[in-house]
Design a protein around this nucleic acid. Sequence first.
RNA 1: CGGGGCGUAGCGCAGCCUGGUAGCGCGACGGUUUUGGGUACCGUAGGCCGGAGGUUCGAAUCCUCUCGCCCCGACCA
Length: 451
Amino acid sequence: MRLSRYFLPVLKEDPKEAQIVSHRLMLRAGMIKQQSAGIYSWLPLGYKVLNRIQQIVHEEQQRAGHIPLLMPTLQSADLWRESGRYDAYGDEMLRLQDRHKRDMLYGPTNEEMVTDIFRSYVSSYKSLPLTLYHIQWKFRDEMRPRFGVMRGREFLMKDGYNFDLTKEDALHAYNRHLVSYLRTYERMGLQAIPMRADGGPIGGDYTHEFLVLADTGESEVFYDSQITDLKFGDRQIDYDDVAQGQAILEEFTSRYARTDETHDEALFAQVPEERRRTARGIEVGQIFYFGTKYSEAMGATVVTETGERVPVHMGSHGIGVSRLLGAIIEASHDDKGIIWPEGVTPFHVGIVNLKQGDGSTDSACEALYRELKAAGLDPLYDDRDERAGAKFATMDLIGLPWRITVGPRGLAENKVELTSRRTGESEAISPQEAIERLKTIYQPVFAAAYH
RNA sequence: CGGGGCGUAGCGCAGCCUGGUAGCGCGACGGUUUUGGGUACCGUAGGCCGGAGGUUCGAAUCCUCUCGCCCCGACCA
């Protein structure tokens, strides 16, 4: 993309309504525009990152064998009356009526609807296991939206639902989700720690929240520092392997890690003192096994091998897709702006032309731009008629992890500068070498994609 | 929902107390200049002062109501 033809309304000054750094940077980098309290338009740059994140979530869900579909945002109140949640949910649920005065709601989640889909078509144990998921906009009418997309009212969420014959099978689905989530977050350059969570009104012991450590996190967390050494990495796994799934669950959840909701001082005291940590975290996902709560209430049953009709065991598993942008920025920024991890960056590399209008720098930049695209990379070429300082400031603000700087000085020796946004380190290399280096840098990102 | 605060140009703000019909910085646009970290100078455009009602000869300014937004708290992916 050529910046002169793009739509990137960056702000030089901080909008006063934004208190935390991710909100401020998203507004300044022209990623979002607030339209109403807790409701945002996604401007091109923000939309691009949102899509990259969605793509990773889709890939990792499908790699785990989960099946995508799409359910509507508006739901009939009747389904929710069946489960009893229409009255239980409270004012956070946005209720409305259509022209026929039928009660509708903007879905805050989809357990009822997916259960309805399941019961309509599935009646045999032979169809199990099954996990359906979608990435769809949700609405929760928060009393006090804040922190930009971290706690909006409208938000994009991936929610998945497993249907299994037995509790044991459902717990394997639970483990499968845990593994897929670990992979998902790592691909986004995040460390999200599974922490024992509170089952809330639904109850149940099998639930973990995934938290990204950040000073601005909404939850206080307590953990054994050893847990931050755990990496999923690129290990090969078989999502059907029950023992392997259980082993990974134990590996990642055996050390103490809890939010204030479930924190237990006595247990925490058993962690060696030098490893005890108290910090803040941002919740970016949750996995949950809840048994037969909805299947019983809504008649989602299957016939077993022996001819018996039983309610299916279910769980639901969410990733806060839009909130992840905020979480990533909270975890990765400096005083100049955002620093995108390679896995989610809106553009792979920025090209800064220091002397726009100069024949040699213009043509060198054009050539780089063309060749980077031909190499499968997505460059942003700052071809505006601006001074170097303004271009650098924009690149730093929007956080592209790599920058190629092209100026007449270097070009005289066939050199451009390749600069890392994260470290600030530069090297003077030929344009061809720069392209090769970027291909190498992004090779793991492309290799992680699932087709 | 309890407590506090703010709505004046695209963004950040002053003016309000002590009514006289709107200003500054940044940005945008046009020029000159400049060219390796938001350059300098000149010029231009842009606002029914959130909305409604009231007081007054006259309201951004005073009064009433209303809408919106932000912060702290309780609540939440």
